[in-house]
Design a protein around this nucleic acid. Structure first.
Lengths: 156, 156
DNA sequence: GATTTTATGACCTTCTTTGACCTTATAACT
DNA sequence: AGTTATAAGGTCAAAGAAGGTCATAAAATC
């Protein structure tokens, strides 16, 4: 199993975990060499797995002394997280973006795996299409309401 | 009683039995090769014998590093939920009936309180109206799918 | 003999990997 | 200062590596 992209993803997440500042800085070329792959493979991993929706920020710089900086957008207070989430959700939410956000909530331990599966099921395009007029609006509305529930302290 | 499909079925059920996590992961191409058949034969077996009705769930991923994942649904919860499903869900489900049903699932401890709140939120008439054409059909469809998730053995 | 179940193969979609070519920043020379 | 060389990272399209679908042929069952 486990392809290269997944391995690189795991590696980056692990060193991010260990980095107490919440970010890591590294060089694309060197990382590529460590995994014996072409440099653009790194970009593929970053653009598919380290997106804002999933809670990461990637900065970079070219030229001599260039680097990649991957920032973990986490460890915020629930209040802030909810605020950020609201902004990310907006008025429209596709299935794909919704799933990424759900993954993010999972990472933040605001959701259990079962809860995540429940919400994913509800948001699945194949389940919504046909019966809804504006699935993207519905997802956006529902996820915002769900955020409130998830932050309630009286539900354990 | 010894056609290919049955042999493959037996094999999968055996390794699924041995798997303590409630699921197995494998590759379609490799399995097909082991049984000297075309890959789509595997899909035939999965779609005729490893259905939700029979207590299984199949997930997959394409592309490099792709795989099949066969999940066994817990038979105990499965039976109870199936019962509930038959009794209480038709093709239409009002908010009121849905809420009542969710209450019953809560009573049987098949749902946590938080999960119940999530589902109630999704099923609330005030959230669905406007964006859906047939809220009652949508609830019925979603609840059936959700029950399957609640039976999954791999979500703890 | 007709119907249902099983097996196969051609073609499709999705995700990953690779490589050629492009842009930007710094350093080194005139 | 202006130009050229070098050292990064970025983009994009094509090839590769899975799994999915569907119609049809073959086999089994009734």
């Amino acid at each position: 199993m486990s392809n290269l992209a997944d391995q690189i993803e795991q590696y980056l997440k692990r060193i991010l975990e260990e980095a107490r500042e919440g970010y890591v800085v590294l060089q694309r070329g060197i990382l590529a060499e460590e995994f014996s792959c072409v440099p653009s493979q790194i970009n593929y991993v970053l653009s598919t797995r380290f997106t804002v929706e999933r809670g990461y920020l990637v900065e970079s710089r070219r030229g001599g002394g260039g680097y990649l900086r991957i920032v973990r957008l986490s460890s915020m207070a629930d209040r802030q997280l909810r605020q950020v989430m609201r902004e990310l959700i907006g008025d429209q939410l596709s299935q794909e973006r919704a799933y990424h956000l759900i993954g993010r909530l999972l990472d933040e331990s605001l959701l259990t795996l079962r809860e995540a599966e429940i919400i994913r099921c509800v948001f699945a395009q194949k389940n919504l299409s046909g019966k809804t007029t504006q699935p993207d609006e519905l997802r956006a509305l529902l996820l915002k309401k769900l955020l409130v529930i998830l932050c309630r302290e009286d539900l354990e």
